[in-house]
Simulated scan of single mutants.
Amino acid sequence: MRIISGGNFAPWFRIVLWATGIVIAAGSYFLLSGLAMFTGALVGMLVLATGTYAERANMLHLKPFDNSYKKARKSYEEKDEEQDKS
């Protein structure tokens, strides 16, 4: 099982992130109190937000975890070398 496939999180992992975030936030709210409740709810919301971000990126066909920037960097290096030769 791969966690990252095609430049984004795998569908099963996005669902796990989403569900885990809800469970952590709700569990913290109902079972804890004070600063522990706040910290737990904050961590749960961050996990939930990560899953939501990955799902929206998938719907828009974006690849936030792809290594395509390396290809772009190489293409700019090639252009700079050509300009330096001229």
Rank of each mutant, 00 (worst) to 15 (best):
1 M>V: 03
2 R>F: 04
2 R>M: 05
3 I>V: 15
3 I>T: 13
3 I>W: 14
3 I>A: 10
3 I>E: 12
5 S>T: 15
5 S>W: 02
5 S>D: 14
6 G>Y: 04
6 G>L: 03
6 G>C: 04
7 G>L: 04
7 G>Q: 06
8 N>H: 09
9 F>A: 15
9 F>V: 03
11 P>V: 03
11 P>C: 04
11 P>L: 06
14 R>T: 02
16 V>D: 07
16 V>F: 15
17 L>C: 15
17 L>N: 14
18 W>H: 09
18 W>D: 03
20 T>S: 15
20 T>R: 02
21 G>A: 04
22 I>W: 13
23 V>K: 06
23 V>T: 13
23 V>W: 12
24 I>W: 08
24 I>L: 15
24 I>M: 14
26 A>W: 08
26 A>N: 01
26 A>I: 10
26 A>D: 02
27 G>N: 10
27 G>A: 07
27 G>H: 10
27 G>L: 09
29 Y>M: 11
29 Y>P: 00
30 F>Q: 13
30 F>E: 12
30 F>I: 13
31 L>N: 14
31 L>P: 00
32 L>Q: 13
33 S>K: 11
34 G>L: 05
34 G>R: 09
36 A>P: 02
37 M>D: 04
38 F>I: 08
38 F>E: 09
41 A>E: 14
41 A>H: 00
42 L>F: 15
42 L>G: 03
42 L>A: 14
42 L>R: 04
42 L>M: 13
43 V>Q: 04
44 G>N: 10
44 G>M: 06
45 M>N: 03
45 M>S: 11
47 V>T: 14
47 V>R: 08
48 L>V: 00
50 T>W: 08
50 T>D: 07
50 T>M: 13
51 G>Y: 09
51 G>C: 08
52 T>C: 02
52 T>F: 11
52 T>I: 07
53 Y>S: 09
53 Y>Q: 07
54 A>Y: 01
55 E>C: 01
55 E>S: 10
56 R>D: 02
56 R>G: 11
56 R>M: 12
57 A>C: 14
57 A>F: 02
58 N>F: 10
59 M>Q: 13
61 H>W: 05
63 K>A: 05
64 P>S: 07
65 F>N: 08
65 F>D: 06
66 D>Y: 01
66 D>R: 01
66 D>G: 03
66 D>S: 15
67 N>T: 07
67 N>K: 09
69 Y>E: 09
71 K>A: 12
71 K>R: 12
72 A>Y: 07
72 A>H: 08
73 R>E: 12
73 R>F: 08
74 K>I: 03
74 K>F: 05
75 S>Q: 12
75 S>I: 00
75 S>C: 00
77 E>F: 05
77 E>S: 04
78 E>L: 07
79 K>Y: 04
81 E>Y: 03
81 E>I: 01
81 E>A: 12
82 E>F: 03
82 E>T: 01
82 E>H: 02
83 Q>S: 05
84 D>W: 06
84 D>C: 00
84 D>L: 13
85 K>W: 02
86 S>D: 12
86 S>F: 03
86 S>H: 05
